[in-house]
Amino acid sequence: MDASYDLLLNAILSGLLLGGFYAAVSIGVAISFGMLDIVNIAHPAFILLGSYAAFIGNTYFGLDPILAAVIALPFFYALGMAVYQVYYVAFERRDERSLSSAPRNDQSLRGLSFFFGLLFITEVGLVMIFGVDYRLVQASYIGEKYSLGPIQLPYRLLVPFIVSMVTVVGLQLFLSKTFVGRAIQAVAQDQLALRLMAANPVRIKRIAFGLSIATAALGGAILIIIQSVEPSVGREYIGRVFAICVLGGLGSFSGMVIAAMTLGVVETLTSTLFGPSWAPAVSFGVLLITLAVRPSGILGR
């Protein structure tokens, strides 16, 4: 009986750590979907790009994967700004020009298809460059464990957890304390008011989307620390990421962290009790139940 309690306790703890990692993967979508109203379903593909950036830095230059991700941050930021610029010119500006105020369904259809195309192109591009083999990174803390009585916490999960929490807290401070940060929070709600504050909504959104993609560099690096990665792994994260953002209430970081940890624990318990092959189904269940029962999320307004 003791053994199974230990098993359960360890499962819950590692679920919480896993949830912390999910928060880092989801925070970019919390910004793009939650605050900018841009449904970037290609976000997991950018996460994978981050994983491969960390893989290159680690394998060819001997860097720590997280350090490699930090070096990659500016590039991802620039990539995000570029993607937003294309999105703006092709979709948002067209929307502004049309007379009807409500976004037409077929406009959002094209925006979604655009990101779906990006997702697919990135995945196939990665397959063409790196093949479908699973890739790993090396670091001193991978494989080690922190033991405290019956509790065993692998550093492989602990380090990503810490990186993730630092990212979330840092972004939260940036969004609530700086002018640009507050403008990002305001941009989806009232563009006119933002213009009156002498901030260009397009520039603010470009910065925000750049930040959202920059988080993917970190998210990708800690993904490849946690598990070995191949190009189609990203797809499993689409459901997770959006389940977490919807469950957390769009745009709320604290709700997102709670949702991420909830999902982490439920998934870990599912793998422990029913086997790991069932875990991907959990996020979909959570997503469907949330959409059907409480679409505003647990901390929704």
Binding site: V39, I41, R235, I238, P280, S283
Partner: peptide
């Protein structure tokens, strides 16, 4: 389950549906 909401939620649900049916 999802069409009462904004269209994007339906799209996201269908993305996740593909993963869950594959899992099953």
């Amino acid at each position: 389950l999802t069409l009462r909401l904004r269209g994007v939620f339906f799209s996201i649900a269908t993305l996740a549906l593909a993963v869950v049916v594959q899992t099953l």
